[in-house]
Design a protein around this nucleic acid. Structure first.
Lengths: 337, 337
DNA sequence: TCTAATCCTGACACCGGTGTCATAATGCCC
DNA sequence: GGGCATTATGACACCGGTGTCAGGATTAGA
C-alpha cells in the first residue's frame, strides 16, 4: 500500500500541490470545478493530510496540554472527558501532564514540556489557574491558555468557572433549613481558590440566617480522603458535637461518613453530612451524600473549545463564563431531631 | 528571543547541521573534539530539537496512544499513571483515546486516530487486548502495540498481565477459611478476559475445598457500580441467603455493601463481602473491602516501556510478563458465626 | 613512504505540507 | 475591443530536522 501524499493527489488531479493545499484548507480563490476535481481525488485515494508535516510548516502541533495536580482522581477524569470532547470536535489531541504545583521546578518542568511538545495551548485545571507565577510564565512565553474553575476574574484570558460560593451557600442553607445550627466545615486545599469560595459561601449562609460563625467548627483539609479522616476525627471529638458537617468535597465528606459510622453514629439521624462536587463516590456509599453538582466536564469542554478557537484566530476579547451548579439531596442529610 | 534551530547551532559551532544532528542522536563517527564543541553550543544557546521536524523526517510522532473503554474510572486513572511514567522516562507523550469496544465503527475510529495522529504505538488496556479484530487490524497496519492485562498468551507481542485466576482463587480461599461455604459470585463484563479468569479462580477454590459449585449463586455483572446493584439485589433476595459475596471488582462489591446496609444487614457479621482491584473506594467506605491488590500502574508502565523500546528497535522475541497480585484483608470479611 | 582501510565531515535531497509572489486566465466597464 | 481589476493557479523557497553518499583526513599495515 503506497503512501498517499499531497503530491500524489496533485498528480492525480492534474494540479499543483499548492492548489491541493488550498482545497484542504478551504481557502478562497479556487474555482468550483478544480475544487470538485481535487475533492474527488481525495476520496479516490483515501487521502488524509499528515498532521506532522502540517505542524512543521505552520509551527503547530494540534495538541493541547492538560495540566493537573489534584488529589481527586475523579475530578481529573471528568476534566479529561470534557477536554477530550472539545479536542475531538476540533481534530486536536489531548496530552495529559500531571505535575506538582508546589514542586521546586514546576516552571522548568512546564518549560521542558513546551519545548519538547510544542503544545498549541494549555488548559489549566485547578489549582493552576490561580497560580500567578505559572500564568505569567505562559504569558511571556506567549502560550495560549484557558483556565478552568479559577477565581481570578480580572484576567483578560479564557476562563470558565462555576459559582462555588453560591453552591456552598445553597448547601449550607439547605442544612440550616433542616434545623441545623451547629454546622462544621472542612476546608479544601489552601492552594485552590475553590477553598476560599466555598468557605465564603458557608459563612454567608450562616450570616444571612443569623447563625454566629464559630471558628472551632472549621477544619483545614486538602480535598484528599485522607485529610478528611483527620478533620473528621477533630470534629467528631468536639463537645458538644456539631449536628451537621459540610465538607468542601465529596471525598472528605465520605471520610467523615466512614469515621462517623465506625464510631456507631447513625447518619443522618445523629449527624448530617454534606459534600461538594457530586463525585461518583457520593452515590456509591450508603447513605448517599447530599452534595453540589458541578458541571466539570462542561466547564472544561467550553474552556478547551474557546482555547482552540483562540489559537486558530487570536481574539482580543476575553472569554469569561460562569456555569451553574445545583444542589442534589440524598440520604446523608436530614431534619434535626 | 530568537528561535534556536539546528542551523543556528551549526553556524555557532562552525560545523554542518548534519554533524549537529549526529551529536544529537549520539551517532558514531564524530570526533570527541567536535562533539564537545557542539555540546557546548547546545548549552550556550539552550537548544532543544523540534520534535515535529524530527517526526516528519523520521515519520514518527513520539506519541503513544492509550485506548480504553472501561467503566471503572479509577482503573483508567491508574493505567494513565503507569503509562505516563513510562512515557516521561523516554521522552514520549501520551495521548488518551476513549472509545467503544462494541461500537459499530471502532475500527474506523481507530483508523481515523492513526491517520490523524500518526501514533508510534498503542497500549491496549482491558478489554481491548483480547479483542482480536482490533489486534489483527493493528497487525496488518503494522502499528506496534502492547497489551495490558489481557489473557491471550499465544500471541507474539508485548503483553503484561497479572494473575487474575490466582488472585480470585486466594480471595475465595480466604472466605472459605473463614468458614463460608455459600459464597455468591458476581461476574465482570463478558468482554473482559479478567471476567473468565476470576470466575475460574473462584471455581477452582471451591473445588479444591470440596464445596459444590452452585450456579444459582452466580450473577452477571459488568464491572460497573450500577450492575453491582442489580446483582446484589438478586443475591440478597436468595433464600437461604449466601453468607459471603465475592464481586469481581470493588465497585460492584461496594454496591453489594451499600444495598446490604440499606437492608439493615450488618457487614461482615451478617454477610461477608470481597472485591477485586483494590480501587480507592475499597478503603473509602466502611467497612473497608477485603480485596486483591493488582499492580495496574506497574503493569502499564512495563508494557509501555517495552512498547517504546520495541519502536526504537523492533525485536523479534515477544515480551510476556505476569506480575503478582496480593490479598488485602479489611473489615468486610469475617469468620462465619 | 606508499596504499588501503577507516574515520569524519559536509553537500544535498527529502519528509509532506504551507507561505509568498509572479503570472495566466477571467470578468467587467466604458 | 482595449484597459484594468480580480480571480485562479503554480513555481519555488521554507519549516527543522534526518538519510545518503561522496570526498577529505587520519590511521594502520606493509
Amino acid at each position: 500500500m503506497k503512501k498517499v501524499t499531497i503530491n500524489s493527489v496533485a498528480t492525480h488531479a492534474g494540479v499543483s500541490k499548492k492548489t491541493v493545499s488550498r482545497v484542504l484548507n478551504n481557502e478562497p480563490n479556487v474555482s468550483a470545478a478544480t475544487r470538485e476535481k481535487v475533492l474527488k481525488v481525495f476520496k479516490e485515494l483515501d487521502y488524509t493530510p499528515n498532521p506532522i508535516a502540517r505542524g512543521l510548516a505552520q509551527n503547530r502541533s494540534f495538541i493541547i496540554g492538560c495540566l493537573y495536580d489534584n488529589p481527586s482522581k475523579s475530578y481529573i477524569t471528568r476534566v479529561q472527558t470534557g477536554a477530550l470532547a472539545a479536542c475531538k470536535e476540533n481534530n486536536y489531541n489531548l496530552l495529559i501532564h500531571p505535575c506538582e504545583l508546589r514542586g521546586e521546578d514546576l516552571i522548568n518542568d512546564i518549560d521542558q514540556l513546551l519545548q519538547t511538545s510544542r503544545l498549541d495551548g494549555v488548559v489549566l485545571t485547578p489549582p493552576f489557574g490561580d497560580f500567578e507565577t505559572l500564568v505569567n510564565f505562559l504569558k511571556t512565553k506567549k502560550i495560549p491558555y484557558a483556565r478552568v474553575a479559577s477565581a481570578l476574574l480580572e484576567d483578560d484570558s479564557i476562563s470558565v468557572r462555576s459559582n462555588d460560593e453560591q453552591g456552598a451557600f445553597e448547601i449550607t442553607e439547605h442544612l440550616i433549613s433542616l434545623g441545623h445550627k451547629s454546622i462544621a466545615f472542612i476546608k479544601g486545599h489552601p492552594d485552590h481558590s475553590a477553598t476560599q469560595q466555598r468557605f465564603k459561601g458557608y459563612r454567608r449562609a450562616l450570616a444571612s440566617h443569623g447563625i454566629e460563625f464559630d471558628e472551632r467548627l472549621v477544619e483545614e483539609g486538602n480535598f484528599s480522603y485522607h485529610s478528611g479522616v483527620d478533620s473528621a476525627r477533630s470534629i467528631l471529638d468536639l463537645s458538644p458535637r456539631p449536628t451537621a458537617v459540610f465538607a468542601s468535597n465529596d471525598y472528605m465528606a465520605a471520610a467523615v461518613l466512614k469515621l462517623a459510622t465506625q464510631r456507631q453514629l447513625r447518619v443522618p439521624d445523629d449527624i448530617s453530612i454534606a459534600g461538594f462536587d457530586n463525585a461518583p463516590i457520593a452515590r456509591h456509599i450508603w447513605p448517599g451524600l447530599t452534595t453540589i453538582a458541578q458541571p466539570v466536564e462542561e466547564m472544561t469542554k467550553q474552556a478547551v473549545t474557546q482555547l482552540i478557537s483562540h489559537i486558530s484566530q487570536p481574539q482580543e476579547q476575553p472569554f469569561q463564563v460562569t456555569l451553574e451548579s445545583r444542589l442534589i439531596t440524598r440520604e446523608s442529610t436530614a431534619t434535626l431531631k
